[in-house]
Design a protein around this nucleic acid. Structure first.
Lengths: 277, 277
DNA sequence: TCGGTTTCGAGAGCAGTGCTCTCGTTCGTG
DNA sequence: CACGAACGAGAGCACTGCTCTCGAAACCGA
């Protein structure tokens, strides 16, 4: 399913591959059918069988998540999951049409987990000044990444099977960045925002983006915030994937400082609380 | 070999894994022996056999690089490489002790390729102002990433087998960032640098870093430049891995603007050439 | 020039993978 | 109660990384 959404990259022209991508398309249909089936059962709770189904599905995801956290996405094996659960590997395909679909489910879970961590960081510093709130949020994301390296790699590292995540991941992925936009919104309502300047050739793009994402915020702020968000993940990725080995040592304070700089870039202004904190 | 340098992440405690990591250690010794053997042959050119060896090694790497560019690191298969080269898969192990070692060779090649692109970008804008030179360098790196997505993913995405690259990749990895530091050095000698301010708790760290990397540059500049460098890769990674899909459309001008902002963050100052360009 | 040593390629084989197909069994419902 | 849908298990296919063995070829010293 994942490898089905790869329009821009060349595929090998072997006939076997064509057959695969065709069966992938069919599988994706089957997958959404299964998903609908699951949610339909969840809502109406048809019976014991339905409950068993969502229970087994949860058990599979749990065991898969354990293996993911232990050894990473590339080492995640359907057969090992089935073995650990004491069932035949073929039985697993009743719940997930392919390994990629299981991975997609884990991707969504990881996004949700990150979103939860971001929201917790937001709530932990709810009374602080804007710059500090932003910094705490960034530190929360970083801490989550350091404690869930394989999950982080799954969602922000190399896309494992193909090069584009399916549409279903989009809302989960948006959750964390929405927290950042919320902080900006609060700052606008309270201490104030100092919108950064933007070159004129970027203004239509910024307006389009802001209209899609946060119409109540100045377009320059939205665009700069998105850039800052991506830049933060550059820092985290470098630290997590070893690019800072033997280069940056005191990474906590380094990251905190850069996150604060990013906050000011976005337009957040220091308050008394930030200065004292 | 790669999976041998994973001290921080938990491994599964199965005995088979221990045996594997042990054999990995042995293999890494064999690998360095083979590497020394290769270079020794290259320098003294013992005979036709030695030449054939380096030729076959190059052919393997070439075919592997082709498969890497076509389908990505996870799909790279030793057997497929051997098949394409018309030799038995087992014969390939005479040249690379394991798949990871072949990947390591490709990683180094990718770093060198990126370094070349960075140097070309530097030379292409040798006469421009500091901000423009930095921006052109960033655009060069981005263009390389967009044209070599799988190579980029190999070196800046998720580390494929383990979580830390072997030491041999370090000099190759440094090549690109040294170009950035060179631009800063030129700016210091010519148009001038405006070193950014740093909180006092980061000054010792910055001093240590600068002493290691670029003793002739102000520590604040070195530290901020490294942060900016990492941030740039955050932008590139987001674009390349689909995080900007349906969010950022005009990515060229977006990236150019953010790269210019990063240049000013580092301490580079606009010149007349930058303003007109 | 000869014989021993090293290097090489090929084949078979092992353990593992994702995935498919078939075949009984069990469950829910008309 | 009976029928069909869902389920679990097993065998099997094609593929992977990797090891071992064996014969042939190349090298090198005597």
């Amino acid at each position: 399913m994942l490898s089905f959404v790869v329009p821009s990259l060349p595929e090998n022209g072997a006939p076997k591959q064509e057959q695969c991508s065709l069966s992938c398309a069919l599988l994706s249909i089957v997958c959404s059918a299964l998903a609908l089936w699951n949610t339909a059962l969840m809502s109406s709770t048809h019976g014991a069988r339905a409950r068993a189904r969502i229970e087994v599905t949860a058990a599979i995801k749990e065991e898969a998540r354990r293996q993911l956290a232990k050894e990473g996405a590339t080492k995640l094996s359907l057969r090992a999951v089935a073995r650990e659960l004491g069932m035949a590997s073929s039985a697993l395909y009743r719940y997930f049409p392919s390994r990629d679909d299981l991975l997609t489910a884990l991707i969504i879970d990881s996004y949700e987990s990150l979103g939860e961590a971001a929201e917790a960081a937001r709530d932990a510093a709810a009374d602080a000044g804007p710059v500090r709130r932003w910094t705490v949020l960034c530190e929360g994301v970083r801490t989550w990444a350091l404690t869930h390296p394989h999950e982080y790699a799954l969602i922000y590292g190399t896309p494992v099977p193909g090069y584009s995540a399916p549409e279903t991941t989009v809302p989960a992925a948006a959750r964390a960045v929405l927290v950042a936009l919320g902080i900006l919104r609060d700052a606008q309502a309270g201490p104030g925002l100092a919108p950064p300047s933007l070159p004129p050739e970027l203004e239509p793009e910024a307006a389009r983006m802001a209209a899609d994402v946060a119409p109540d915020l100045p377009p320059e702020v939205v665009m700069t915030a998105l850039a800052a968000w991506a830049q933060m993940f550059g820092l985290i990725g470098f630290e997590l994937f070893g690019q800072f080995n033997r280069v940056v040592e005191d990474r906590d304070t380094f990251f905190r400082h850069v996150a604060g700089q990013l906050a000011r870039t976005v337009g957040l202004v220091d308050s008394r609380q930030d200065a004292t904190a």
